[in-house]
Design a protein around this nucleic acid. Structure first.
Length: 423
DNA sequence: TCTGGGGTCCTAGGACCC
DNA sequence: TCTGGGGTCCTAGGACCC
């Protein structure tokens, strides 16, 4: 399981207020000014600048609840711009990969790496400084002997100078002061279970009887205990993990009872999913379609999902589209106001591992369909999503997310490049 | 009264994360 | 009026098999 040793430690690189930093990169006038980034549909706050955190605006709060304070304190607001964030994420991590061979990307703004203990702090600074100098993006680096402790070191780094190496001696001192709720992997549910067992701090869990911990808190509890003891239970992945599933879903601008709109949304998600499959060279064995009415309505009917095992693993747009629409027919109920639709592609396997459909090889029809789908994908890549559409369609305005304050695609569209002028 | 036990596979749902 | 989207892993329970 573990691939750390006494000679190596785990590092965590973490973008500071990542989405906010991405926006500020192209709006230097917003340095040291309060900024928030909203989720899709401008629903809730998903990133906050330090100034906003200091105002006490919490993560995840619905936007409409804080509109007054936003206006009052002149907070700059952005809709999320994932095209921009993904591109900057790629650039940030390519710097880290150049410095550390063993690197595992964990999320859009975080990644783990391995480094010899003797060089830990120096490498941490090298990463932070190189990213700041070449990209202008602020990151923090935490270093310790397991992922969980590296995460904690990362929070110390953010409070301090930006790089923190948490030695076992340092950890021994602070573990009794760290509440289990602040430990990575402990959410509300596990925190309650730990509290009921009389465990309050990281130190409490570290010294608890391990057999009892395993019995009472399952494998995750046992791993958590090891990680806190500085024993790595979550390896830093050397080979990139094969992706398990691809999901596309979105809330509608407002709830709808119109079947044509729900169909169009599902079709849109199938198209996006197939683009992902083709881009990554994968085929899916299972397809799930899910639609639901408002999450916040009591006893709301109309929540439904259905999954099927496909006849063969496939990335065939036409087959997936037909299958999804057939499932939707079974799920859809008239007179339900639907709020959200999505699809899940799972059981992903590399396309190269899928043998052709029949004993005599791929049929002509299948080959033609593949050719059409790949042409459609290329055209959409070139001219923008949904320039060409296969399957059901409704104007985007009928269901697509609200994005009232989105920044331009500064780095990925020629016509939106930032302009610089000098006199 | 008592009805094998253990393995695998699949699925749905939960918990957690960013 | 307005409450995100995209992931991972684990567990429990049922079906099935020997």
């Amino acid at each position: 399981m573990s691939n750390t040793s006494p000679t190596h430690v785990v590092g965590l690189v973490d973008g500071n207020n990542f989405f906010v930093s991405c926006e500020r990169l192209f709006r230097p006038d917003l340095q040291h000014k309060p900024v928030v980034v909203l989720s899709s549909n401008d629903g809730c706050v998903v990133a906050r600048s330090q100034e906003v955190k200091d105002m006490g605006i919490p993560m995840g709060v619905p936007y409409f609840q804080i509109k007054d304070i936003i206006k009052d304190k002149q907070v700059t607001v952005f809709s999320s711009n994932f095209t921009l964030y993904r591109d900057l994420s790629r650039r940030v991590f390519s710097v880290v990969r150049n410095i550390c061979k063993t690197f595992e990307q964990y999320s859009i703004d975080e990644g783990f790496f391995l480094v010899p203990a003797a060089e830990a702090e120096a490498v941490g600074w090298q990463i932070k400084d190189t990213i700041a100098r070449t990209l202008g993006m602020p990151v923090s680096v935490g270093l310790a002997s397991s992922k969980t402790l590296a995460k904690y070191a990362g929070t110390l780094a953010k409070r301090g100078r930006g790089v923190c190496f948490l030695s076992s001696a340092d950890w021994a001192v602070c573990a009794p002061t760290v509440g289990l709720g602040d430990v990575w992997g402990v959410g509300a549910q596990r925190l309650r279970a730990f509290t009921e067992a009389g465990l309050q701090t990281a130190a409490d869990l570290m010294v608890a009887d391990s057999a009892l911990v395993r019995r009472r808190f399952g494998v995750e509890g046992a791993r958590l205990q090891l990680e806190l003891q500085g024993v790595s239970a979550y390896a830093v992945a050397i080979a990139p993990k094969l992706q398990q599933s691809i999901m596309h879903s979105r809330s509608f601008r407002s709830a709808t009872k119109r079947r044509s709109v729900v169909e169009a949304a599902v079709a849109h998600h199938v198209r996006r999913g197939v683009e992902d499959l083709l881009e990554r060279g994968l085929c899916a064995q299972y397809l799930t379609v899910a639609i639901r009415s408002s999450r916040y309505e009591r006893n709301a009917p109309g929540w439904g999902s259905e999954g099927v095992c496909l006849p063969i693993p496939t990335a065939d747009l036409f087959m997936l589209m037909q299958t999804a629409q057939a499932m939707l027919t079974r799920l859809y109920q008239t007179d339900v106001a639907y709020q959200k639709a999505g699809i899940l592609l799972s059981g992903l396997v590399p396309a190269t591992m899928v043998t052709a459909g029949t004993l005599w090889g791929e049929s002509l029809v299948a080959r033609q369909r593949k050719a059409v789908a790949s042409t459609v994908a290329q055209l959409n890549q070139r001219f923008g999503s949904d320039a060409i559409q296969v399957g059901y369609y409704a104007p985007a305005t009928t269901w697509q997310a609200r994005q009232d304050v989105r920044s331009p695609a500064y780095t990925t569209r020629w016509n939106m490049l930032a302009r610089v002028s000098a006199r």
